[in-house]
């Protein structure tokens, strides 16, 4: 487990795709074991923020540090190693379509040269409710199944942090609650969680289960939202 005071820290960070700053003066810290939601209108920069948080993008100003490492100074191999410690569920979940679900879920282990334990994999698939689909190819999965498979893939390495981008994007309310429960369970296991979502109902529901905090993007800044919501 990570020992420092912050897992991911932004310091006056900004990002600009080229048409003016999308995010400005972002300063915040994700403490170990914390649970955050990130909300904001569509196009406000939630996905962009997450990409900065796992070093897919580099800030155009200011600093981002992950596990106390400044992202700008990371080599390609270091970025690869860092991604094994940060589990990401992407908004557009992508798999290797020619490999069955089980192989996709194990992919982070495969590429890092680690042996996978068949029982652990079985347990994990059981946990996300996909044990019966372990031989299915990703294109044949439903939206919710893909989201859960992505979550399983994000946690298989036992990462310290889980970043989830609209994990309930295309599933019904019942499935949303189920995914939320999985994330809450992970948080109780000590993982730092950040979930980007525009689903306020989901956030309210979560607040009943964990002391989650809400970050809101408005007018290029990110602020801690009040308790009202």
């Amino acid at each position: 487990m990570h020992g420092g005071e912050r897992v991911i820290a932004f310091e006056n960070a900004a990002y600009n795709y080229g048409g003016g700053e999308l995010l400005s003066e972002v300063s915040l810290r994700l403490a170990p074991g914390s649970f955050h939601f990130l909300t904001g209108p569509s196009g406000s920069g939630k996905t962009t923020f997450l990409k900065l948080a796992y070093a897919e993008l580099l800030p155009t100003a200011g600093h981002v540090t992950i596990f106390d490492r400044e992202v700008r100074g990371l080599s390609r191999d270091e970025v690869a190693r860092l991604r094994r410690r940060v589990g990401v569920v992407h908004q557009d979940v992508q798999f290797l379509d020619h490999l069955p679900l089980a192989a996709n879920v194990q992919l982070p282990l495969t590429v890092s040269g680690r042996k996978s334990d068949a029982r652990d994999l079985g347990d994990l698939l059981q946990w996300v409710g996909l044990a019966h689909l372990s031989d299915a190819l990703p294109p044949s999965l439903s939206g919710g199944e893909r989201q859960r498979a992505a979550l399983a893939r994000a946690v298989i390495m036992g990462p310290d942090v889980i970043l989830a981008d609209e994990p309930t994007g295309n599933v019904d309310w019942e499935m949303s609650l189920r995914l939320l429960t999985l994330l809450v369970e992970l948080n109780r296991m000590g993982k730092t969680i950040l979930v980007a979502t525009h689903d306020l109902n989901l956030i309210r529901q979560a607040k009943n289960q964990v002391p989650a905090r809400v970050l809101r993007i408005s007018r290029r800044r990110i602020q801690l939202a009040g308790a009202d919501l």
Binding site: E56, R76, D77, A80, R81, L82, R83, R84, V88, H90, Q94, F95, L96, L107, P108, V111, S112, G113, R153, M157
Partner: peptide, 16 residues
Amino acid sequence: AQVVRVLRLVGADDHY
């Protein structure tokens, strides 16, 4: 390209 992107995202290094 899609395969390479997924591999990078799950932490594969270039040599792999």
